[in-house]
């Protein structure tokens, strides 16, 4: 395919006539399937047929999986999905058709039951800004900084309607996921004092258009747009990494966040 193999068969190939006889002692032993006895040759031919069909089928399935919706995928989409999912799923629309042109920041705040018995609401913590700050100057950003919150929010948005109502099981799961990430991240900020406990959390997104390049005449609003979710009640059981494994991450990163940003 890529032309590793350039046989130097320079123009000496004759017509399909009889192969000129050669002294057998000079001929190399036949290679591959030609070197087998008839019975084994048949077995090898069968193997060849099966493998060739399987490889072609797989390539065809891959093609239709990544191709735009078309006649074949409309008629046989179930067959293709059956073959592809779950292990061969793929999406290569990287920055396509258009790259993302907005910075989506996920922010969270907590409601605390204080030791004095009062209720206090914290400022907003810009968790995405914290991620961004930890990525800055970092040659090896962690998936926990670059993907976790970002993709969780995508997952939430993709499985909820405009009124924040979950769509199916994925909607429920994404809600839990975002809540647990936000809870974990707020808890690391330890927003309260001794004896204070986080009882409710609220999450919102802050979407800002990337300013068009300076040579462009385009005008876009750079005013942030907020999407605020309802308050969620949390219990200590919801807090991730409490099973004796929490310590690993807490020290990492520091207080990079812009506390109260975008308020």
């Amino acid at each position: 395919m890529s032309g590793y193999d350039k046989d130097s068969g320079g123009g000496s190939a004759g017509p399909d006539g009889p192969v000129p006889t050669r002294a057998p002692e000079h001929a190399p032993p036949p290679i591959g399937i030609a070197g087998l006895k008839l019975g084994h040759q048949i077995a090898a031919a069968c193997a060849l047929a099966v493998i060739a069909v399987a490889a072609c089928a797989h390539v065809a399935m891959l093609f239709f999986h990544v191709a735009p919706s078309n006649t074949a995928t409309k008629q046989h989409g179930d067959v293709i999905d059956e073959w592809i999912y779950p292990e061969f799923e793929q999406n290569w629309k990287l920055f396509a058709p258009n790259p993302l042109q907005q910075n989506v920041g996920v922010q969270a705040r907590a409601e605390l039951d204080t030791a004095q018995g009062t209720v206090r609401t914290t400022d907003w913590y810009d968790l995405s800004a914290q991620d961004g700050a930890r990525i800055d100057g970092n040659p090896l950003p962690s998936h926990t900084q670059q993907n976790e919150l970002r993709r969780a929010w995508d997952f939430y948005v993709g499985s909820h309607d405009n009124k924040n109502r979950p769509i199916g099981l994925r909607g429920q799961l994404s809600e839990n996921y975002v809540r647990r990430i936000a809870y974990m991240r707020l808890d690391r900020e330890s927003p309260g004092g001794e004896g204070d406990e986080i009882v409710r959390i609220q999450v919102r997104s802050r979407t800002t258009n990337v300013r068009p390049p300076k040579w462009s005449e385009e005008k876009v609003s750079t005013k942030p747009v907020y999407r605020q979710l309802p308050w969620w009640t949390v219990t200590p059981d919801d807090l991730p990494l409490t099973g004796g494994a929490a310590g690993d991450d807490a020290a990492d990163g520091g207080r990079a966040g812009a506390k109260g940003a975008g308020r």
């Binding site: 990544v66 290569w92 258009n98 790259p99 910075n103 920041g105 970002r150 068009p212």
Partner: peptide
């Protein structure tokens, strides 16, 4: 896939597509 889907995007057509990822907080270390 990556190429053919990009061809359809207005930002890849007007030549500014690469500008945008450079301005995303998550992709500008």
């Amino acid at each position: 896939t990556a190429g053919w889907y990009k061809v359809q995007g207005s930002r890849w057509q007007d030549g500014t597509a690469v500008y945008y990822p450079l301005n995303l907080d998550y992709f500008s270390p």
